[in-house]
Design a protein around this nucleic acid. Sequence first.
DNA 1: AAGTTTATTGACTCGTCAATCAACAAAAAA
DNA 2: TTTTTTGTTGATTGACGAGTCAATAAACTT
Lengths: 194, 194
Amino acid sequence: MPKLGMQPIRKEALVKATIVEIGRAGSLDVTVAQIARRAGMSTALAHHYFGGKEAIFLAAMRHILSIYGAEVRGALAVAKTPEARLDAIILASFSAANFRREVISAWLNFYVLARTVPGAQQLLSVYQRRLHSNLLAALRPIAGAKAVPLAHAMGALIDGVYLRAVLRDGPPDGQAAIEMLRRYVAAELEGRPE
Amino acid sequence: MPKLGMQPIRKEALVKATIVEIGRAGSLDVTVAQIARRAGMSTALAHHYFGGKEAIFLAAMRHILSIYGAEVRGALAVAKTPEARLDAIILASFSAANFRREVISAWLNFYVLARTVPGAQQLLSVYQRRLHSNLLAALRPIAGAKAVPLAHAMGALIDGVYLRAVLRDGPPDGQAAIEMLRRYVAAELEGRPE
DNA sequence: AAGTTTATTGACTCGTCAATCAACAAAAAA
DNA sequence: TTTTTTGTTGATTGACGAGTCAATAAACTT
């Protein structure tokens, strides 16, 4: 009963299964068999479509990154003032879609993956640069000379909040994270604009 | 040529070798054989002294945590004002001993380990609670009601800076990290003390 | 109708690795 | 001196997992 045009469907199923399995395992110690089983196919098929485990991981990473990117882009498009743009980035970073256990766990493990796999390292660098330039663009008009260090600090703070969310038991508290970021921005901007 | 009293010596060698190997590999995908070889002994001996791989990892984690803890304690002991205590924590967090590639890499991977191994989870929780209460004690007199959220944010920021240091190629820049933390504290405290 | 491309899997290979064990050696205790 | 404790390793076991392959079948092409 083989139907044609399965490739994209299978690939997507594998990518989603990978994220779920990494979330469950809490690490990259996930077998191709586990991923394939969850995606409802044999391991051979997974290899057939992706060629290897590393490619599956990279595709999963690309998937998460692209969802996040799309959300940020969408939110920025409707934001008119620099303040609104800054807030849009913060909100997107901790939205229900991104700030979920599974996704956070995957994120953490992609950092680990980036230490070994050049492709992962590169993907993560792209994400960081994009975040930084988005932050900078929003901050420049309202933070003056402070913009650059502030953007760096915000990036690190966002990553840190993600990291800490991994350890907690319950569901991650996106609202608290958003308030933490907003409070910091407010504190920095409230002083003299230099 | 077996000498007596080897146990502590062997254990320490294994712990140090573990940290080095995790740093090299950039992940927990490190074999007992690699660790044992670097520590100058057979894999059987490593198992003999620790009983298993997990115990070796936990010992390595305890080692890093205890060095960090000792450094913070030492710095706090000589700091007399709340401001000095706060700065002492910041300085210790990014000291040359702690803010090194190997150690940072180990740190990141211990976060991953904590998702799977209850013992690791517990160790990390202890560290986080201690850091939080140290920060809180220093902040309370100078930050008033802001102290609690500020302590949380600083903890997250420190972790975030660590996380980002992992990705960069060159040696981590402790000085820049210290300045980022100081600027953060300054910005938050500069407003009305509420 | 014959041939080609796409989908799919069970079975297999090959390597790796944690853990165990039997055996040997030296010091300490008896 | 015999026995026990401590240190040490090479060799082996047993499990698991990534990747390959041959085989089967449905759909599309000519």
